[in-house]
Design a protein around this nucleic acid. Sequence first.
DNA 1: CACGGATCCTGATGGC
DNA 2: TGCCATCAGGATCCGT
Length: 271
Amino acid sequence: MPELPEVEVTRLSFASRIAGARIQSVVLGKPLRWPLGCEPQLLVGQQIVGVRRRGKYLLVDLQGGLLLVHLGMSGSLTFSAHAGPAGKHDHFDLHTSQGLLRLNDPRRFGAVVFAPTQNSPQAQKLLGKLGVEPLGDGFDLATFCALIKKRRAPIKQALLAGDVVVGVGNIYASEALFLAGIRPTTRCARVSRARLALLHQAVRSVLTRAVEKGGSTLRDFSNAQGESGYFQLEAAVYGRAGQPCRVCGSVVRAIRQGQRSTFYCPSCQKP
DNA sequence: CACGGATCCTGATGGC
DNA sequence: TGCCATCAGGATCCGT
């Protein structure tokens, strides 16, 4: 489901409300992608210090460790004062003194994993190979160019891989490449430095705008307060195959790359 | 080691 | 309450 903007919007919607809460009980549903990695009882009584984000992971800091929460393709979090009974797709409930944090995830590609510290093997297995944060200071153009130039894969695949820059998923990869005027199939090494500079800026701007809009283009996205209706951000190319490009009027095309849909404008985006 | 494909799972949608 | 194929926001694992 969620790319960086949706994860960040989710974080912003409950981080301050859950901070300081004490965990009262943990209820697990069906298995998620990975096991929790500790006895649920270990969490009970711990205080929640805060919620950070790394890539598409939410890091729920506890006094004695942290929970790494990933929403996979179809996950969403809610945090509410009054807890209803768990539904069919509610697979992780964290009852706290300040409300219930609940993960709903029909496809169960998501996960909640406990780690004793962020440097522990459990955490590093998931976080250790992640690329730089696109909205942070570490996302500098020279490093971005150097890493991309080393590769031979199509540029879109490199964006999605997450080991150069994190948080860019299938929707925003197509959107950023459109903004930069780069054909998604172009091999990394063949993208000019000038266009990589445009792409570097496009990644920042498309993600920033999506966070500001409250999480985008996703049809069924809602934040942890259950607020939806955030669909103001119009995609330039994603999901618009056969429709006219908003810039030049050419017909937007859809192709498959690595089992994922890619959309582009054949005249605005040059190979 | 970098790459491409298969894979986990459920639900929505559209053709027949 | 039809059946079947295809597709969906992710990312790991495995063979080459």
